[in-house]
Structure formats: structure tokens, C-alpha cells
Amino acid sequence: MIRAVIVMNTQGKPRLVRFYEFQPPEKQKELIRSIYGVLSSRADNLSNFVQTDAMFGEDTRLVYKHLATMYFVFVFDSSENELAMLDLIQVFVETLERCFKNVCELDLVFNFVKLHTILDEIIFAGQVVETSSEEVMKAVDEIARLEKSTNPISIVTKSVAGRLGR
């Protein structure tokens, strides 16, 4: 099972945090900090796996990818294949790329909800349920269409903001 998905930038600021087992907030903070501590100490050309027995319990490890200013981190246990998880990060990043076109850190900062929508389409309760970024995009677009048809929040705030901005 996948235990956690964390996306953070190279300064250690988290951009997406999803734990699939309950962790109290203080513990979450601590885990993110210790993961960042490990990752930031690793040079670029090294392998992408880190044993995390001390952080997440026996037999767990994480796989990460360092892309531009971001770390994409998946934590998982022995029922997942290491290389498959590496591929899954690729699927996730590909989907982000499809979704945002030339995705950059700012996209992740301002699309908090969408990021979760995408991730939830790929991983459900720690289990991988979809591995095709095309299918994921279809679902995400469908949700977006559904929400757009009736979304007063964005309309109101945007119009107000627009008016006051003038």
C-alpha cells in the first residue's frame, strides 16, 4: 500500500501532502521535515530510493523524483514494486503536465484542489486505481465541467475582486 504522497519544493515547503494512514498534524510536520532532510542531502545522480523504516515503520521506503524545483515523493511498503512506484510518479507528473501545460511550481501552489482531484483519481485509499494519465485527465475534466456549471464562489469573488481592483 502507498502510505503517503508528498510534493515539496527544494526549500522543503510542502505543496501537496496526502497521508493514507492517519498521522496527527505535528507528526506530519515532523515527517515532512525529516524527509526533506534526507532528500536535500542527496546529490542528483544518486538512486531514487530511501529506506524509511525509522520514519514510517518497518519495511517502508520512499521513492522520489527531483524535477526542476520540486521533489515528488511516494512512501510505500513491501506490497508495492519500487520501479512501478517510480513509474507512478511519472504518471502523476505527466498528468500534471497535461493539465497545466509546462507545469511549474506556481501551478501547484494555486491549484491545491485540482492537485488533490488528480491524485485521488490515481490513488484511492493507498491503492493504485488508475495508471493511465489519459483516463485520469478525462475524469478530472469531467469533474471540472460539473463544478464549473454551478460554482458561485469563483464567480462572486472574481467579480468583486475585479470591480474593486479597478
Binding site: P14, R15, P25, Q28, F112, I143, T150
Partner: peptide, 29 residues
Amino acid sequence: SSIYSIDMAWAAFHALELLPSPNPALKRS
């Protein structure tokens, strides 16, 4: 809560309050 690991257990009830909302965006959030 998600980004800064701030406890939001106190808001659990408010989240439940919004579940029946007919607005899909609200409901999903």
C-alpha cells in the same frame, strides 16, 4: 491545514454540514 500541518479536527462538523450541498464544487471540497 494540509500545507502547514495545522490541526483542523475542530472543523470536522462544518465539513459534514456541507456534504449535502447541491453545489458539486462545495460538496467536493
